[in-house]
C-alpha cells in the first residue's frame, strides 16, 4: 500500500511536468528566447538582409540625443502618455457610471447590459472604419449633430489637436470590459452593509462614498493597471485611421516601433524601443502597486 502511494506521488510529479510541458516549451520558444534575441539585436544594426553589426548603445542613445529619431520617440511617447493619462481615467469613469446604472435592480437588466456591451464586441478594424465615418468632418453624423445645436465641430481625425480626443471618445464608447468587471465588483458588495447604513440613516450619496467606493477600490485598481498596460500599447487605430498623422499627432509608441521594424527594417532600433517600452510599463506598474497600499482597501 505504502509503495503504491509513493508511486502515485512519483507519477504525479512526472505527469505534472509532462502536462505543463507545452507551456514551458512555448515560454522558452516564444517569450524567453525572443527576449534574449531582442536584447542582443538592440545592440546591433540589423536590417534582416545583412548580418547584425554591433554598435553598442547607439540605438538607445538615438532615442535621447535630440536627432530626428529622438524627436519622433518623444513625440510618440507624448501621444501615448496623453492617451493613457486622459483616456484611461475617462474611460474608467464612463465604465463605472454605466456599471452603477446597470446595478440598479430593475426588470430587463440583462437586456440593458447587452446593449451597453455591444460596442465592445465590434472588431477593431470594423470599428476604426466606422469611427472614421462617424467623425468625418463634412458628412460625419457627429458633426451634423453638433451642427444641429449650433456648434461647428472640429475636423477630428484631420486635426492635430482633435485626433487624440477623437480616439479617446472611441475608447470610452468601447468600455464594456471594465464595465462588466465593475459590475461584478458592485454585485460582490454584501447587501447587509447597505441595510446597516440605511438603519443608521445614511443618505444615498453617503452610502456610495463610504461603502461602494472603498469596497470597489480593488476593482478600480485592477481596471486601472490593465487599462494603462493596454493603452501604452495602442496601435491599430493609429495605423488604420490616421497612419500616425496628422503632423504625427497619432504616432503612438508601438506605431513608431512598427514603422521602424517593418517599414524601414531597422530591427535593432525597434528592439531598443521595445525594451524602453517594457521598462516604462514595468516601472509604471510597480509604482502603482507601491502606491496602491494607500488607497486600495480589501475590507471596510
Amino acid at each position: 500500500m505504502l509503495n503504491r502511494i509513493r508511486w502515485a506521488r512519483h507519477e504525479e510529479t512526472i505527469a505534472g511536468w509532462i502536462c505543463a510541458l507545452p507551456w514551458i516549451l512555448g515560454f522558452l520558444i516564444f517569450t524567453a528566447g525572443p527576449m534574449v534575441i531582442s536584447l542582443y539585436i538592440s545592440f546591433h544594426e540589423y536590417n534582416v538582409l545583412q548580418p547584425p553589426l554591433y554598435i553598442g548603445f547607439e540605438n538607445y542613445i538615438r532615442m535621447f540625443d535630440g536627432g530626428p529619431e529622438s524627436e519622433l520617440f518623444w513625440k510618440s511617447l507624448y501621444n501615448t502618455v496623453y492617451m493613457t493619462v486622459i483616456g484611461v481615467p475617462l474611460t474608467l469613469l464612463v465604465a463605472l457610471l454605466s456599471a452603477l446604472l446597470l446595478n440598479v435592480p430593475v426588470k430587463g437588466q440583462a437586456l440593458f447590459r447587452t446593449c451597453f456591451y455591444v460596442p465592445s464586441i465590434v472588431p477593431l478594424v470594423a470599428n476604426s472604419l466606422l469611427w472614421m465615418w462617424l467623425l468625418n468632418s463634412r458628412y460625419g453624423i457627429l458633426n451634423m449633430v453638433l451642427g444641429f445645436f449650433g456648434i461647428k465641430g472640429p475636423a477630428w481625425l484631420a486635426s492635430p489637436v482633435w485626433s487624440k480626443p477623437a480616439m479617446i471618445l472611441m475608447s470610452a464608447w468601447q468600455c464594456g470590459s471594465p464595465m462588466l468587471i465593475f459590475l461584478a465588483g458592485l454585485q460582490g458588495i454584501p447587501n447587509s452593509l447597505y441595510e446597516a447604513a440605511r438603519v443608521d440613516g445614511a443618505s444615498g450619496l453617503k452610502q456610495f462614498t463610504h461603502i461602494t467606493l472603498p469596497l470597489l477600490t480593488p476593482t478600480i485598481f485592477f481596471n486601472l493597471i490593465m487599462g494603462i498596460i493596454n493603452t501604452m500599447q495602442i496601435f491599430v487605430r493609429g495605423y488604420i485611421m490616421t497612419n500616425g498623422g496628422p503632423a504625427d499627432s497619432t504616432l503612438f509608441y508601438v506605431l513608431n516601433l512598427y514603422f521602424n521594424a517593418f517599414r524601414y527594417f531597422r530591427m535593432g532600433y525597434a528592439s531598443a524601443l521595445a525594451w524602453i517600452l517594457f521598462i516604462i510599463v514595468l516601472v509604471v506598474t510597480l509604482i502603482q502597486v507601491r502606491f496602491s497600499e494607500r488607497w486600495v482597501h480589501y475590507e471596510l
Partner: peptide
C-alpha cells in the same frame, strides 16, 4: 497535480501576462 516547481512556474506564467507584445513582436 502536485509537483515541485509548480508555484514558481505558475508565477512566471502570470507575469508574462503583463509583458507588452511589442517586446516579442520583432524577435518572433
Amino acid at each position: 497535480l502536485r509537483w515541485k516547481g509548480r508555484e514558481l512556474l505558475f508565477g512566471i506564467m502570470l507575469s508574462t501576462l503583463m509583458l507588452p507584445f511589442a517586446v516579442t513582436m520583432v524577435p518572433q
